[in-house]
Design a protein around this nucleic acid. Structure first.
Length: 563
RNA sequence: CGGGGCGUAGCGCAGCCCGGUUAGCGCGCCUGCCUUGGGAGCAGGAGGCCGCAGGUUCGAAUCCUGCCGCCCCGACCA
């Protein structure tokens, strides 16, 4: 491609709206432009990268027996009502105004719809069906450029098996394919145990990339590799011993004391001697009091595993249930189920709210005074706590979710009546898995991890083009001639060459552009070297310009790309 | 959806508080000359519904009201 005739609108300055590095660089390098919040157009160079990612994914999906589909994004709403997911998605699903259609945010229903019409016998199983296609989600707040969009590309696949053992195989082969895909895409990633959330199902893992722009929080152990989404992460933390002597309970006036910090300061005690109370309404009606040690935060995802639906109680509800406001609630006299975090097991001489405004109670003994408390792990893991596997210090940081794999089981096949006959002629629901990869996130995460002050540093797999041939002064005949010769030779070999043949651009301009765009190999043809029969060969990864004889450069490119 | 910020040329910004000639600056763009090893120089030029609508005023980019858009924090996130 001749750069003089290619649309690559690079920017010297970063647009004001872009904040994260990948967003800034994708705009500056002329890869993407925004159309509307969370809706992006891919320009020629950016789309080439998307196509490279697509190729990698296709190869690896085909290698595990995946069959590529292309399903419609425009779906009749009735299909989504079969699984009650119109309600589950709520406002996140786009609805059309002038017909009863929705824009698909994912495709479990549509794949299951086809499966139930086609798959009838165990002999036809397993099946792995996938597609690379546009998804629509009406995100309340799109952000970080292409990382969280309202329209995005997803590779989604679905497995249909006759047994749970076979589902494990389909799931494991996806997990392995995902590792190969992300490795080939040059990403430093890790896999975490995750919550299957509203997707339902029995098991799930996420493929994550550490990034300040991430929206998930993960706990990760450097030494043994334990990793989990903080929604489900656990940790070991030094157990707090029971005092040898239990005091009797006593009431204390605590005017204006609301938080644990204020309470521990007021009483000159350690925060871990306080039991914090939070009241939740579960399954729409039942009040549950959750007791946490000191300032420990409640992990609501863990609560949701116990009760399917959980929300904090409103202030009026608190008043009705306990007779007190949020800062003065405690377990004694609470009418309802009480859950306590494991850290409070067997503790005594604790302080908590008195269920009377401006009063707290001391001398609480969990064994003696709150015998009904169910002890469960409910904490949000904090950095520095012990890894549940090896005990080393655990790290907690933000990350971007690149891919997510789920063992769905029979949730969708049951709801939609997608059944097959086993060897005995007995019918069963298909056992399903679903597996997704966000293509834009692969691209953005790569840029997040592979850039320097000058621009993007593509690897061989994802680079929009393979070679950047730069003629420094195209008005000089000998430079133009040499560039043309090289361009023709390299393209004849089947290499993708971007040829900067612009006549007016200054050398510095061209080199800045090349570094921004980040094609792996730069071949720089300039007056200074050509007189000696040389040109410069630069790898974007190391920035070293190597003098190479005109006659040797094609060989070096062939070697680099193994062609 | 709550909180905050911003909206002036393709991009980055000034002007607004305190209303008043023809709305400026840098980069980019066009023409010509010149220049060619890290985003050159000179000269000339084009490009604005000052986000939109309404209001106040003799007069609004500037003051007031409403709306829209974008960004950030939070909530949400299959």
């Amino acid at each position: 491609m001749r750069q003089s005739k290619t649309f690559i609108p690079t920017l010297k300055e970063a647009p004001n709206d872009a904040v994260v590095p990948s967003h800034i660089l994708m705009l500056r390098a002329g890869l993407v432009r925004m159309l509307s919040a969370g809706v992006y157009s891919f320009l020629p160079m950016g789309y080439k990268v998307i196509k490279k990612i697509t190729e990698v994914i296709r190869e690896e999906m085909d290698a595990i027996g995946g069959q590529e589909f292309h399903l419609p994004a425009l779906n009749p709403i009735e299909i989504w009502e079969e699984t009650d997911r119109v309600k589950a998605f709520g406002d996140t699903m786009f609805h059309l105004k002038n017909r009863d259609y929705v824009l698909a945010p994912t495709h479990e229903e549509i794949m299951t719809y086809h499966a139930r019409r086609v798959l009838q016998s165990y002999k036809e199983l397993p099946q792995v069906w996938y597609q690379i296609q546009t998804k629509f989600r009406n995100e309340a707040r799109p952000r970080s450029g292409v990382i969280r969009g309202r329209q995005f590309l997803m590779k989604d696949s679905y497995s249909f098996d006759a047994s749970w053992e076979d589902l494990d195989k389909s799931y494991d082969s996806h997990a392995a394919a995902y590792r190969r895909i992300f490795e080939r895409c040059g990403l430093k990633f890790f896999v975490v145990g995750a919550s299957s959330g509203a997707m339902g199902g029995t098991g799930s893992e996420e493929f994550m990339v550490r990034s300040a722009a991430g929206e998930d929080t993960v706990a990760h152990c450097e030494s043994c590799g334990y990793a989990a989404n903080s929604e489900v992460a656990t940790s070991v933390i030094q157990a707090l011993a029971r005092d040898s002597e239990s005091k009797d309970i006593f009431e204390i006036s605590t005017p204006n004391i609301k938080s644990i910090d204020e309470l521990s300061a007021f009483l000159s005690i350690n925060e871990s001697q306080c039991a914090k109370s939070r009241v939740y309404i579960v399954n729409g009606k039942e009040p549950v009091l959750v007791l946490m040690c000191g300032n420990d935060e409640v992990n609501e995802t863990k609560l949701e595993k116990i009760f399917s639906e959980v929300r904090p109680a409103h202030p009026e509800e608190l008043q009705n249930l306990t007779g007190a406001e949020a800062g003065s609630i405690g377990p004694l006299g609470f009418k309802g189920r009480i859950l306590a975090d494991l850290r409070l097991k067997d503790r005594n001489n604790l302080y908590s709210g008195a269920n009377k405004n401006e009063y707290h109670i001391g001398g609480i003994d969990m064994v003696r005074d709150v015998p009904s408390a169910e002890l469960v792990d409910l904490r949000i893991v904090q950095p520095g706590e012990g890894c549940p596997n090896c005990g080393a210090n655990i790290d907690v940081f933000p990350a971007i979710e690149l891919g997510h794999i789920f063992k769905l089981g029979t949730r969708y096949s049951e709801a939609m009546g997608a059944r097959f006959l086993d060897v005995n002629g007995k019918d069963h629901p298909l056992i399903m898995g679903s597996y997704g990869i966000g293509l834009e996130r692969v691209m953005a995460c790569f840029v997040e991890q592979n850039h320097d002050d000058f621009g993007i540093i593509w690897n061989k797999e994802l680079a929009p083009m393979q070679v950047h041939l730069i003629g420094l002064n195209m008005k000089k005949q000998e430079i133009a001639d040499e560039c043309e010769r090289l361009y023709s030779e390299l393209t004849t070999l089947g290499l993708q060459v971007l040829f900067d043949d612009r006549k007016d651009a200054q050398p510095g301009f061209k080199m800045k552009d090349a570094d921004l765009l980040g094609i792996p190999i730069q071949i720089i043809v300039g007056e200074r070297k050509i007189k000696e029969g040389l040109l410069e060969f630069k790898l974007r990864t190391d920035s070293v310009k190597l003098d190479v004889a005109l006659t040797d450069v094609v060989g070096k490119v062939k070697e680099f790309y193994s062609v």
